[in-house]
Amino acid sequence: MTNHYQSTRGEPRVALVTCTELVDLDPDDRLVLAPLAARGIAAEAVVWDDADVDWSSYDLVVLRSPWDYALRRDEFVAWASSVPALVNPAEVVRWNTDKRYLAELSAAGVPTVPTSWVGPGESWLPPADTGEYVIKPAVSAGSQDTGRYDLADPEHRQLAAAHVRRLSDARRVTMVQPYLTAVDTEGETALLFLAGPDGLAFSHAIRKGPMLTGPDPGPDGLYKAEEITARTAAPAQLAVAEKTLAVVPGGTAQLLYARVDLIPGPDGAPVLVELELTEPSLFLGYADGAPDRLAEAVTTHLARRG
């Protein structure tokens, strides 16, 4: 039976946090509005950096599409720390918005894409080998400032070095990773987990087609276009996802949602590309019942705060 939470102020109010470019929410996120309304929950889109918002007036503040934060991460993390009833919570936001968390997960035994890091002001030369590499900033959203480089191509080598210099000059940490060619055939698998009465539970999975076709062309909007289809998660993928979630600082009970992005490694076994705990697309439109499951997750977190 659905557990309807009732605020002491009447109908519970939930803020779905977005950005000025998406004041009416991403279309996928709008799918949760009707299930929330059916549960007696008033939800509204609210822009994260709107100075006129009284965040304490909401019973729950749910991060959804604040996708313009990457160049203002310090401001965003400080904002998150000031917001009561935020999910996922501010400490998770602080940890998860800098992809150097991948090094922590790798050290904890999670299979991850091998990554090297270039700090601001550090010199970097393309590796001597001639494979393909991905270069991106440690703080980013929507594959912004991300490029794919074939180091067998002299021009690509120059463009790769220029990409790292551009990020370094902007005082940003750079990630350099080998390109996993299985993404061209198998694609990337995103496993979605949502809060339930017994904790975080697997909801559904999707496949993303390959997105990176070459060097970073520069600013091109909030996020790159994606080719999405529904997918059935394999046992090996679920096992890596569970292993990943098991080492999240503070545990998973605090989470409203989690997205685990995997690609087959050179041996075919799944490896972690990203663990999305801050503002992931949840792909609600690609699985029957997913909008209802997210609404139930919201209800669960409201009940905990009631």
Rank of each mutant, 00 (worst) to 15 (best):
G109D: 08
T112E: 07
T112Y: 02
T115Y: 09
T115E: 10
S116T: 15
S116C: 09
S116P: 01
W117D: 06
W117I: 12
W117P: 05
W117M: 05
W117N: 03
V118H: 09
V118I: 15
P120C: 04
G121I: 02
E122D: 15
S123E: 15
S123W: 07
L125W: 07
P127Y: 08
D129A: 12
D129M: 10
D129H: 13
D129G: 13
G131P: 01
G131F: 07
G131K: 09
G131M: 11
E132M: 14
E132C: 13
Y133N: 02
Y133F: 13
V134Y: 09
V134C: 08
K136N: 02
P137Q: 05
A138P: 03
V139I: 10
V139E: 11
V139S: 03
S140H: 07
S140Y: 06
A141E: 14
A141S: 12
A141M: 10
G142P: 10
S143I: 10
Q144R: 15
Q144V: 10
G147P: 05
R148N: 04
Y149G: 00
D150M: 09
L151A: 11
L151V: 12
D153S: 14
H156P: 02
R157T: 06
Q158N: 11
Q158A: 14
L159A: 13
A160M: 07
A161L: 04
A161E: 15
A161K: 01
V164P: 09
R165P: 00
R166G: 08
L167V: 00
S168H: 03
A170Y: 04
V173N: 05
M175P: 01
M175R: 07
M175I: 04
V176G: 01
V176D: 03
V176L: 14
Q177M: 10
Q177N: 07
P178H: 11
L180T: 00
A182L: 03
V183R: 09
V183A: 13
D184A: 15
T185S: 15
E186N: 11
E186A: 15
G187S: 09
G187Y: 05
E188Y: 07
A190F: 06
A190C: 13
L191N: 00
L191T: 00
L192M: 12
L192W: 04
L192T: 11
L192I: 14
F193C: 00
F193A: 03
P197V: 06
P197C: 07
D198C: 08
G199T: 00
G199P: 00
G199C: 01
A201L: 05
A201W: 01
F202C: 06
S203Y: 06
I206L: 11
G209S: 08
P210F: 03
M211T: 13
M211G: 11
L212S: 06
L212G: 03
P215K: 11
